[in-house]
Simulated scan of single mutants.
Amino acid sequence: MRDAKKSVAGTGWHQHVSTNSGSVYATQTGDVNIHETASPDDRIRILMLAANPLATARLAIDEEARQITERLRLSRDREVFELITCWAVRPMDLLQYLNQHRPHIVHFSGHGDRSGEILLSADDGIARSVSLASLAELFHATSDNLRVVVVNACHSATAVQAISRYVDYVVGMNAAVPDDDAIAFAASFYSALGFGRTVPHAFKQAVAMLGVNGAADPRIAELAARPGAAPHLMVRSQ
């Protein structure tokens, strides 16, 4: 499982922060949105699905969301991106959020295990396991806009093979990943995308930052590209 070092902030809060380049909204349900000047139909939607069941070790998912928000806000193309975060995600939430937001990027942050499963939340606080193979089929059924999937969880490299059949680019981790490294990777990856880098180049920069961050093995992250996948994220208005 991903190594925990910090506590996760509770849900049920509401916050609005204005910036020179736009606004960041954090709603009572835990959703976070960066609203800029671009039309909503032209934005690249990043759906961050976060789960840290009560029965599992605490992860710094709130810090990861904050770092991604900040890196996008400071990027050149910040008006192009919309970040939507959904907290304490349960299995039944997946289809709801995928249909509701129709994301171009799905980013999962939480626990994974060696059997190739991610752990989602439940009413009783007990973790609910979802196989990455099942998740791949769900993405296949809701892949209208989906271009990139990032599974920022331990032992999630299984996702690379399972999901890459249906999605252009998939990122997974091939071992246990400490919180600090998971956060550094995510922040660097989205910062690079925010400066117009291709998906493969953004991945390369994020891996390089793992080394700078002092990761024991920067090669912990793996990227799979579907044959013929366009390297740049292109968004079609709907």
Rank of each mutant, 00 (worst) to 15 (best):
A192K: 02
I105F: 00
Y166L: 00
V207C: 07
A51S: 15
R147K: 15
S237C: 11
A159I: 04
G211L: 07
L223S: 02
T69P: 00
A157T: 08
A184S: 15
T142G: 03
A229I: 02
I68H: 06
P200S: 04
I183G: 10
N145C: 04
D144M: 05
V149C: 11
D123P: 11
S131C: 00
T27P: 00
T158F: 14
Y169W: 04
I105N: 00
A221I: 11
Q161V: 05
Q100K: 07
L83V: 15
L74R: 11
D144S: 12
S115L: 10
G228T: 02
A184E: 11
P53H: 08
S39K: 10
I44P: 00
Q238S: 09
Y97Q: 09
L83I: 13
S134Q: 13
G211A: 03
A162K: 08
R90A: 05
S109E: 02
V8E: 15
R43V: 10
D41Y: 11
S7H: 12
P218F: 09
G194E: 02
H140F: 05
D179E: 06
V160N: 07
R2N: 09
A192I: 01
A187I: 04
A225D: 01
V17R: 13
D123I: 09
R165E: 10
P40K: 14
D123N: 06
L72H: 07
R78D: 03
Y97F: 14
D3H: 03
R66I: 14
R58N: 14
G112V: 09
V80T: 14
H104V: 08
P227Y: 04
I118P: 02
P91I: 04
N52Q: 10
G125E: 04
L135Q: 02
L193G: 01
G172R: 00
V177H: 01
G214I: 01
V17S: 13
S143P: 01
R71D: 08
P200V: 10
P53W: 01
L72K: 05
Q205N: 02
A192L: 03
S134L: 07
G112M: 10
V106K: 11
V171D: 00
E137D: 13
A4T: 08
A133N: 06
S143M: 08
V167M: 04
R147Q: 12
S23M: 11
S191Q: 12
I163P: 08
A224H: 04
I126W: 07
R45C: 08
I84V: 15
T37W: 12
S237G: 13
G194L: 07
R128C: 06
A127H: 04
A153W: 06
I34L: 15
A51R: 06
F189A: 03
R2D: 05
S39G: 02
D41A: 11
R58Q: 14
A60S: 14
A187C: 05
G110D: 03
G12H: 07
Q161N: 12
D41E: 14
A202L: 03
F185E: 06
H201S: 09
A55W: 00
F195H: 09
V148P: 00
P178T: 08
T85H: 06
F185C: 05
R2W: 07
H232F: 13
V171T: 05
T69L: 06
T37S: 08
A186E: 01
A153T: 03
Q28L: 12
H201D: 14
G196S: 03
G172E: 09
Q100A: 11
Q96C: 01
A225R: 10
N33S: 12
V24F: 11
R78P: 02
H35V: 15
V177Q: 01
